[in-house]
Structures are given as C-alpha cells and as structure tokens.
Design a protein around this nucleic acid. Structure first.
Length: 405
RNA sequence: GCGUCGGUGGUGGAGUGGUCUAUCACAACAGACUGUAAAUCUGUCGCCUUCGGGCUUCGUAGGUUCGAAUCCUACCCGACGCA
C-alpha cells in the first residue's frame, strides 16, 4: 500500500447521505458502515480477541490517554505495537485523548456525557472554567497550547499537546488515529463554543503537520475531528475547515442533546468530502446508528454495548432487558430468540441472571458477547440492505419492533 | 437443676431511658449508563396514605417512668460453664 488508507464507496442511499463501502487498512479491510468495538485500555473489557473475531468484529478502538498513563506508549512500542501487544491483528483505531479533555475537564463530576438530557440539573450547567469545581480539582484543564491532565490513577500531572497525542498514537501504532480535539458540552455558551472550535481547528492543523513530518504517516491514517456544538453555522464551518485539510478521514465529535444529533451529523456530512470515511464518535444506540448511517456515517464506536452488558442490560430485537429484574430468574429462554450469537445459542436468561446475581465474571463475558454481536450485526445488516436497496424497509421493520427507552 | 451471656426489621449486626421505624452492610426491588476514572452509579427497602401525615414494631407477658429496643420481674428460646 502506498497510502495508509483506501476508501471506496460501493453504493449510495437514494435521496440521503448514506453509503456502503470499504476501507482498506494495513491490517485488513473494513466493510462499511461498521461498528467499532471499544477497548480503551488495550482490551475490550471481559472479552478475548478470539471472541471478537468469532462475532465478526472488524475493527477496535483503543485510547491514547489511558494507554499513555498505563502501561505507557513506549512500552507498547517495545512490545511491538498495540496490535501485537493485545493480540488484535485486524484494523485498529486509537482515540486522541480529546474526549478526556471533556470527560475529565468540563464534564468532571457532572451528569453530562456524550448525550446530554434536556432536563439536565441546573447545577450541571457549566458556568465557570476554573480548575477547581466546588473545591474539588478537575482532572483536566485546557490551555491554548494543550491540556494539563492529572492522572486518575495516581494523581500525577501530565501535559498533552496535539503533537504529544500524535506521538503517543505513533508509538501505539493503530491503523487509524485521531487529531487532538476539544469536545464541548451543548450547555456551553456560543462564545465558548466558538473559542473551543478555533482551538480544535488549530490543534487539528498541528496534529496533521506533526503527523505528516513522520514516517508513520505512511502506514497510519489520520482523521480530523469536526466539532461546533449545536450551531449550524459552527458545525458547517468546522466541517469546511477540517474537511479542507489533508486528513485521511474524519471524525464527528461533540456532546449532543439527543434531538440535535441527526441535524448536527447531517450538517457535517453535507460539507465533508464524500470520498473519505467518516466516523461518528461515541455513538451506538440502535436508533442512533440508523440515523448515522442514513446521514452518511461510515464508522461508529461506542462503549455502550460493552458497558451496559457488564451492568446486566442486554439488547433484544424488542428493546433492552435488565437481567437483574426478578422475572428473568426463572426465564429459561435465550436472551433473544432471533439472535445467533453463542450466548443466545448456548445459555439461558435464567443462567445469565444467576451469574450476574452471583457476581460471577462469566456473566459480563456472555453478556458482552451478545451485545457486541447484536450491534455489530445490526450495522453490518444496514450495509447489506443499502446494497440490496432495502434500507428504509429494514429500518422501519427494526424500529417498529425495537422499543428504546 | 444452678450460673453466665445473649435474643433487634429478609440476613448479619449497631443502638443500652427521650433527637428510634431504629446507624451500617448485605440481600431484595427498580432505574441509569452513548470517542470507558464504570464488573459502576442512583433510588426504594414495616403497614396505610388524599403525600400533610397516620398506625404498628426491637423473643413473650407484665411492671417502673411524663417517656422503654434500652431499667425491673416472670416466662420462652439459644450458647457456654458447673453439677
């Protein structure tokens, strides 16, 4: 390969931004749209890479910030790179640490995350930006040049700049890496959104320049990240600015109010170059995946399927179920009778219920296998129906049955 | 038989005269979780309620006291010790 990434569109959705295609990376080809399973610390929690392959997972995403702190990116490089270190030999992405600017900074200690609820508690609104919140020091503070992080593991102070993020990601060696960005909350005011956006753009440029100056740019693709909050003007401006830089692909970032998400994604993808892959960062509820695919997203990653699995919540064709609920104690049927995963084939709801109540770790594994299978196959099914020309029908059938809470 | 200690809500276990429906933990019952500080977090957890409150509980039965899970007496039950 003379380029780190080749993207081809096979078929577009009529009258919409959606498309099916493929991304060729040094570690294999990803058929898109595709769901990227998150393995933050170099492991998809509770699962082995063999299980991921059995399920049909095509690509994983690990985190720069976490691996930099532990075990350290230089150690991973000495181990021969992250693919070898964690025994995942397929396509891999790393996030830049940009999300931790948000989750350990402005969002620290507040009930805000990727999706901000409209009825959010007033005390969660971000009113000031000091490094101390109610007497508790935040773990991240933002400067124009980079971000100071306090390690959540041992409290030590670290400073990450766009160049540092890329350097770490070069040491980790993923096929697709991300520019360092600042994710903002929708509750920030317009002035702050604008200020943060210009910082993200400046950081994107620095990330790209540093990346291009290194030989790793021959084998690692760099994605720029579009921000801009809920403003159409800022989203489109960001898509324009980031889209015009020489990135190999693009991420769409931000923390959304649920009802803003589809418009924000559409604004970005109307402007972003069509011939490069787009990744919607951190989104993974079934209804959101349909929205994203329809609006031209090729890749999604999300901690949801694995996190909720570990907490006993499983996807089914008719909605999520909580295995802790009393009714499942004696339910000897499969988790989802329509599902073909090994958990549904070989185990019952009653057994999983027992494992969770007994705090047995196999419960987390079996539940994760199911949820990852469910979401992975949902998205790959979306690809198939785009190719078959029956996306709308499939969407209607699925969402007609699936009750989201 | 005598003696000692002890019997508290589903469980363990605090509390030893008023602020006690009774700390806390577990269990149970529900809820949340979207680029993972997450095998985590939150709520409920005697009965009734028009959500203001009302009623009933600390082995059983009496008693002392303005007031008892807390003090006294008897009984029942358990553990240990001595016969």
């Amino acid at each position: 390969m003379d380029k780190p990434l080749i993207f081809k569109i096979e078929k577009k959705l009529d009258g919409a931004l959606g498309r099916a295609g493929e991304i060729v990376t040094p570690h294999g080809t990803i058929l898109t749209p595709s769901f990227v399973v998150v393995g933050t610390k170099g492991t998809v929690k509770a699962m082995t890479p063999e299980q991921l392959l059995d399920i049909g997972v095509q690509v994983t995403l690990c985190n720069t910030y976490h691996l930099y702190l532990q075990p350290g990116d230089e150690l991973v490089a000495r181990a021969g790179g992250l693919h070898k270190f964690m025994n995942w030999h397929g396509p891999m992405m790393t996030d830049s640490g940009g999300f931790q600017v948000f989750s350990l900074g402005a969002a620290y200690g507040k009930e805000i995350s990727k999706i901000t609820k409209p009825e959010t508690n007033p005390s969660n609104i971000i009113t000031e930006r000091s490094s101390v919140l109610d007497g508790v020091p935040r773990l991240a503070t933002i400067g124009n040049d980079g971000v100071s992080f306090r390690s959540h593991i041992d409290g030590s102070l670290h400073y990450i700049t766009p160049e540092k993020s890329i350097e770490i990601q070069h040491n980790l060696g993923a096929d697709m890496i991300f520019a360092f960005d600042e994710c903002t909350s929708p509750s920030e005011d317009d002035r702050y959104q604008e200020e943060a956006l210009s910082r993200t753009h400046a950081w994107a440029k620095r990330s790209l320049e540093y990346h291009k100056s290194k030989p790793n740019s021959q084998r690692q693709a760099l994605f720029g990240i579009v921000q801009g909050g809920r403003s159409e003007e800022l989203r489109k401006k960001s898509a324009q600015v980031i889209g015009s830089m020489d990135f190999d692909g693009f991420g769409i970032g931000g923390s959304f109010a649920k009802e803003d998400m589809s418009t924000a994604v559409a604004w970005c993808n109307e402007v972003l170059p069509e011939n490069k892959p787009r990744h919607l960062l951190g989104i993974g509820e079934p209804e959101d995946l349909f929205m994203g695919v329809e609006n031209g997203v090729d890749l999604f990653d999300c901690v949801g399927p694995t996190r909720i699995a570990r907490n006993g919540m499983l996807f089914t064709a008719s909605g999520k179920i909580n295995l802790f609920n009393a009714g499942f104690v004696t339910d000897f049927g499969p988790v989802d009778s329509d599902c073909e995963c090994s958990t549904c084939r070989d185990y019952t709801r009653a057994y999983l219920s027992h494992l969770f109540r007994a705090k047995e770790m196999l419960g987390a594994t079996l539940a994760s296998i199911h949820n990852v299978y469910f979401i992975t196959h949902l998205v790959s099914r979306m690809r198939e129906v785009i190719l078959e020309g029956t996306f709308d029908k499939f969407k209607k059938e699925f969402l007609g049955r699936y009750i989201s809470k």
